[in-house]
């Protein structure tokens, strides 16, 4: 017994080091395994609060560009107002196809990372506004990511610039679909993998979200085809997609509540159970 105590006292620093290293490696490995809620994330009131404060300062510094955008939008709305045929129609959220206005939550990006291999955004609304895990996040230009963690007032988003994200996408003109991933290199481009060789693809074709995803409704813009590669040894194309969004500069975003989602997952689970 005496010897055990002596051993612990003599090696206390080493044991402490190994313990703390073990904890941090466990957290790292947990965060690298796909789409598990992480223990340490910026969706909590300390870091969320700090990021909100920083964001208010940044917003003040960007007032000029914000004003320019507002003036442009004002001009667009004015032109709509004067040319509109049916004034009972709401002009705004109709632009997102297949989604009713009631299913959309408007939020703001308060922290944005784009320099690592696994990038996350922090939003300033959370479960109090009805945000849940696995909801889709888009803005007026195209898709942005998928909700990862939520707290009452904040939530984190797995950006499409994250090597763990896989999103179902297709060619707008022909329904050939593939899986949208990121290779960790440039912030302006993502990769669309596993597109069959049968598809005829030209530079400049539009890529939109596909109907197989339960997260996004079909037909939301992603980007345009930039370069098409043939993947060696397979019969698939890899397409380099130029994003419509500038992922380094994001402001207000829309979060989509997909109503059919739970029904679809329940249905799929039922058929899986039957198979077993």
């Amino acid at each position: 017994m005496q010897q055990i105590f002596n051993f612990i006292i003599r090696n206390s620093n080493r044991l402490l080091f190994l313990l703390l290293l073990g904890i941090s490696l466990a957290l790292t490995i947990q965060s690298h395994s796909f789409h598990r809620s992480r223990t340490i994330s910026s969706a909590n009131f300390i870091s969320g609060g700090v990021y909100e404060k920083i964001n208010t300062i940044n917003e003040y510094l960007n007032l000029r560009t914000e004003n320019d955008e507002l003036v442009l939008e004002n001009a667009r709305l004015k032109s709509l107002l004067f040319n509109i045929e049916d004034t009972t129609k709401a002009p705004m959220i109709d632009s997102i196809k297949g989604v009713k206005p009631a299913d959309i939550i408007v939020s703001k990006v308060i922290h944005n990372s784009y320099s690592t291999h696994e990038n996350y955004l922090t939003l300033n609304s959370g479960s109090n506004e009805g945000i849940k895990q696995d909801m889709g996040v888009i803005n007026s230009l195209g898709i942005i990511g998928v909700i990862d963690n939520t707290s009452p007032n904040y939530s984190t988003v797995v950006s499409i610039l994250n090597m763990k994200s896989h999103i179902n996408a297709k060619l707008k003109k022909s329904n050939h679909f593939g899986s949208l991933t990121w290779n960790g290199k440039s912030t302006g481009y993502v990769q669309l993998e596993d597109v069959p060789r049968l598809a005829s693809i030209r530079k400049g074709d539009t890529i939109v979200t596909g109907g197989q995803s339960v997260i996004f409704p079909e037909g939301i813009n992603i980007g345009t085809v930039d370069i098409v590669y043939k993947k060696e040894g397979t019969s698939f194309y890899v397409i380099k997609v130029k994003l419509f969004n500038d992922m380094t500069n994001l402001g207000h975003v829309y979060i989509i509540k997909s109503k059919g989602r739970e029904e679809l997952i329940n249905l799929e689970n039922k058929s899986k159970e039957k198979d077993e």
Binding site: T28, S31, R38, I40, Y51
Partner: peptide
């Protein structure tokens, strides 16, 4: 916590 990076800085 601030970088959303699991435990890499801690390690």
């Amino acid at each position: 916590m601030f970088c959303n990076s699991g435990g890499i800085h801690a390690a």
